[in-house]
Write a protein that binds this DNA or RNA. Structure first.
Lengths: 342, 342
DNA sequence: CTGAAAGCGCTTACAG
DNA sequence: CTGAAAGCGCTTACAG
């Protein structure tokens, strides 16, 4: 079942020691002045016997597995699925692999999954965390596992983090809506609003409207009861203190749930209700009306996070002095927020 | 950096051998008649020192890594992202992890990625293969790595495979379109049409129309130039021998590209052009018109594949006698294919 | 230029 | 009930 041809087999067949073979295979032939001839014999036998190094044995010896863990709330969410692909490519470029973990926004599940990952000796962790406080992650990062947070941070100067310009993005959406004449915004948030990204999107949005004397209504829906919560809200839209004239969906899943409700109820966008979303999706530009959205710089975020992670892995960084990196976002204006002025 | 507390540390502190500790930790205390008292002392020290077993060392010894590889064309594709999530959950239920790999429909890249995975000693592989022939995968499966194909098979009785009822699904769509009065179908296929799933969808579709004397036009677009190829087609729709009155998109990506073009050109669906897709997406039921689609039984497919993989891993199966499992699909009829009869 | 030996951290016969 | 020892397949000082 396992790898049947080992270094020893190669060594025996070539008639050298396995030290020699290992050196050659790891590209240290030159460094150790091993003759070209010997190298060729080694390579030939390696090919002949179809030798593949056992990465598990190598990992045990070197302490590196060439594996990183990607921990997110749900890998099937388009945002994280894209991330997974980018990290996979980044990792593959250096022969590394990525293991995926979905936490379902559950802080304890996240800890369990990360523990499994650490037992597997992953070289590092990229996590879109569901922790409410930094202590647990900090404790494992301090002298041990390299960690970079992505999408969500846990406060200044504790854990390296790469996030989108969430506050700015929220403000951009608010300003746009305000300019279009909307005056009664409803923020469709998540019950997990403690997470920094959502909180900051909402803050940026609300603050911007406040500048103009407009108070936003905020309504939180559950991560695990998204559609039903949204449906319930739409069923009672008129029951709200002020009937909203536009909606801000704080992420792609919320927007999709809202659109589902809107579609089912035959609400006309943007005439009856404006709609904007933080996070862009391919179908937002296909449908009619197109959905105005803030586009996240996923690729840049991943690249930066990967870079930061490798600084930690290679050890050339002072972990007591880390930063939060904020990557600019882009506003894509489409018809869903273009109010016909009356 | 690495795990600093080992079995030896526990053994020393408790004052027993590491054999004893290992036995206790692996739940073999009862079997070896180890006293309850000893067990408790072990567990206490394990907790005290915060011991975590080194999975790499364990894997080297046992030959099992508790890891499976999921190899697909693109993990960011909604279909595969969903699969990833389901496999992750299935694996996690027994403490296993999944490593993702995206092949970009490149058979050689697939082989390279699988080789990396095998070097990592994964216990098994689930692959939506891009191989054109079975030989390579078969050779590694024969006496070595457990493999189950998913979504695409490579012929009868060679490698275990779980696929959707692709031919039936194609036929269902064709019959529906035919009943709606469409007479000039255009199949939007992929240049990778050699893969069984796409080929069978097309076959089922074409055969059904042929029964009624209708010949389908088939147009293949490139996996890596999807949108531009689709755009080019739509720009010259009238140049086709027969102007199509409906389109069959063979997968979700093709459908999205088609919708993009349709939207950009202001083509009205279904009045001017009917549209159906193999593979359902959440937004298909949101937009107006809704898109008629065949829904794939992803969850069932994954469960069956996982089960088959575990039969191979645990060794209780005859690998020379494998089957292709076909899981039924469901037709979701929406407005995009409802022709107004004139 | 090359090899013998130690050791990474486990599990598992084997012996008592 | 418990322990000493071998060994999984590598890499890496160390010695010559």
């Amino acid at each position: 079942m396992a790898n049947r041809v080992t270094l020893d087999d190669i060594a025996r067949k070539v008639g050298v020691s396995k030290t020699l073979v290992s050196l050659v295979l790891n590209g240290k032939a030159e460094q150790f002045g091993i003759s070209r001839k010997t190298c060729e014999r080694v390579f030939q036998v390696v090919k002949e016997l179809n030798y593949r190094p056992n990465q598990t044995a190598r990992s045990l010896r070197t302490g590196k597995t060439g594996t990183i863990g990607l921990v997110v709330s749900d890998i099937s969410n388009a945002f994280y699925a894209q991330m997974a692909r980018i990290f996979e490519d980044l990792a593959a470029a250096q022969g590394h692999s990525v293991i995926i973990c979905s936490t379902d926004e559950d802080a304890e599940k996240e800890q369990r999954l990360i523990t499994v990952l650490r037992n597997r000796q992953v070289d590092g962790l990229v996590v879109s965390t569901s922790q409410r406080e930094v202590s647990w992650l900090l404790s494992i990062n301090k002298y041990d596992t390299p960690i970079v947070l992505i999408d969500r941070h846990l406060g200044d100067n504790v854990l390296a983090a790469v996030v989108a310009a969430n506050r700015t993005g929220g403000a951009l959406l608010a300003r746009h809506l305000k300019e279009q004449g909307y005056r009664h915004p409803l923020v469709l948030g998540l019950s997990t609003s403690l997470i920094s990204s959502v909180a900051e999107r909402i803050d940026g949005f609300v603050d911007e409207f406040k500048k103009h004397g407009v108070t936003c209504v905020i309504h939180a829906v559950g991560f695990n009861s998204l559609q039903s919560d949204v449906d319930a809200l739409f069923a009672n839209l008129k029951a709200l203190p002020v009937k909203p004239d536009c909606i801000f969906a704080v992420n792609n899943n919320v927007a999709t749930a809202a659109l589902q409700s809107i579609s089912a109820r035959g609400i006309r966008v943007p005439i009856q209700l404006g709609l904007v979303c933080f996070d862009d999706l391919p179908y937002f530009s296909i449908i009619n009306p197109g959905i105005t959205a803030v586009e996240q710089p996923i690729s840049q975020m991943c690249r930066k996070a990967f870079e930061l992670l490798h600084q930690q892995i290679s050890g050339n960084i002072d972990r007591s002095n880390v930063s939060i990196y904020e990557i600019p976002v882009k506003l894509n204006i489409r018809e869903s927020s273009l109010k016909k002025f009356s």
